[in-house]
Nucleic acid binder design. Structure first.
Lengths: 151, 151
DNA sequence: CCTATTCCCTATAGTGGTTGTAGGTTCAAG
DNA sequence: CTTGAACCTACAACCACTATAGGGAATAGG
């Protein structure tokens, strides 16, 4: 009864509206990112506009690749009324650097992978350039002495 | 005694030689990627050249971003003597596609993030463009019918 | 009021690829 | 024989979820 005056919704609707799964909403709550909402007498969560806004913020930030801890920090900072947004800026720039590094790594990797594939003629595994490229033969010393007793 | 005739090494040396951690070597064994090596009488693992080669293969493949399951598949395929390397090629191409998709996503993300940051003037959180961009205000439906009772 | 359906609850385990820990045993050098 | 490093197993933690089991709550229709 108490909550009908506000247009409160259940967790399923909230989740659908924000492109989240129900479990994830509860997970955010357990992580302290979303405040615990009021409950019905039966114990079910009821959410209002503020919760929706906050969850939407979290989802947007996740789409930007921010870690949950960073998002928590952003939310905290956004509530300090007179604070400068310097720290916010710093977190965002760190995230950008992270993304830049990952892109660079992936691009290098893509190059290597693509070259590997180009050289493969599709014949047999014994002559496969892909397996060859992955194999350890590149930087072995001399392999003359092999005691075959092994295994 | 049995293993001294071969130039077998302990797990620590193997790990160091291949740029792996000791735990990770054991983890690969538990995942079935590395065969269980012979042991000393005291129960310690002793590795030979074949193990080193195989582990080096795994590490190279991991550097290429292949998942452990895919690596297992590659290893399996590489042992089928007369097989064509078509499946190997397929796995590598799938990996390339995966990498391409990730690069694309990250680049798009980078754009958004970078634009966000550029617009931030470093003043106060109340006017911060970053927080604004992450906020939910962008795609609210019509806000005319909003029970404004909300806390 | 009863029932059926849908939603929701908690608690727990699993994902991928490691890393870290605790509490003990074995090895190699001196 | 003693020391210290390396090694052993088994288990928990990381991140951000996802999935499952075994129930209870809300709601629409009869």
């Amino acid at each position: 009864m108490n909550f009908v005056i506000d247009n409160l919704v259940g967790i399923g609707i909230l989740a659908r509206e924000t492109g989240t799964s129900v479990q994830t909403v509860r997970y955010y709550e357990s992580r302290g990112l979303l405040p615990a909402p009021p409950r019905t007498e039966g114990g079910q969560r009821r959410y209002g506009r503020l919760h929706r806004d906050r969850l939407a913020f979290i989802r947007h930030a996740r789409e930007m690749g921010f870690a949950l801890d960073a998002i928590g920090e952003l939310l905290r900072l956004s509530k300090e009324e007179d604070a400068s947004c310097g720290p916010v800026d710093r977190i965002a720039r760190e995230q950008l650097q992270l993304v830049d590094r990952r892109i660079e790594q992936l691009c290098a990797l893509r190059e290597t992978l693509s070259r590997m594939i180009d050289r493969c003629d599709g014949e047999s595994v014994t002559s496969c350039r892909i397996l060859e490229a992955l194999g350890p033969s590149q930087n072995l010393p001399a392999s003359g002495k092999d005691g075959g007793t092994g295994a």
